[in-house]
Amino acid sequence: MEWINEWFFYGLAFIVAVAITGSAVYALYWASSKGQLRDLEKGAASIFDDKEPIGQPTDFFPGKTPKRHH
Rank of each mutant, 00 (worst) to 15 (best):
D50I: 07
F14S: 13
G22I: 00
R38W: 02
Y26W: 11
T21H: 04
H69K: 14
P62H: 05
K34E: 10
P62E: 07
T21D: 03
G63Q: 02
W30V: 10
K42C: 03
S23D: 04
W30P: 00
P66T: 03
D49S: 08
F48H: 06
G43K: 06
A17R: 02
E52V: 10
V18N: 01
K42A: 15
Y26K: 08
E6Q: 14
E2F: 12
G43W: 07
S32G: 11
A19N: 03
M1R: 14
H70R: 15
A19Y: 03
G11D: 03
L28E: 09
L37V: 06
S33G: 00
E52K: 07
L40G: 06
D50C: 05
W30L: 06
F9R: 15
G63Y: 01
A13S: 05
K64V: 10
S32R: 11
Y26N: 07
K64R: 14
K64E: 12
T21N: 06
S33P: 00
E2G: 15
D59L: 11
I15W: 02
R38T: 14
E52A: 09
S32N: 11
L28C: 13
Y29V: 11
D39W: 01
G11W: 00
G22N: 03
T58D: 04
I15N: 03
D49Q: 04
V18A: 10
P66C: 08
I15Q: 09
F8W: 15
T65V: 07
K64I: 11
G63S: 03
S46Y: 03
T65M: 10
V18T: 07
S33F: 06
A13K: 04
F9H: 13
S46M: 06
N5C: 10
D59S: 12
I54F: 09
A13D: 01
A13G: 01
Y26P: 04
Y10A: 10
K42T: 13
A13V: 05
T21I: 06
Q56D: 13
M1Y: 14
G35N: 02
E41G: 09
N5R: 15
L37T: 10
E2S: 15
D49W: 05
A17Y: 01
G35R: 00
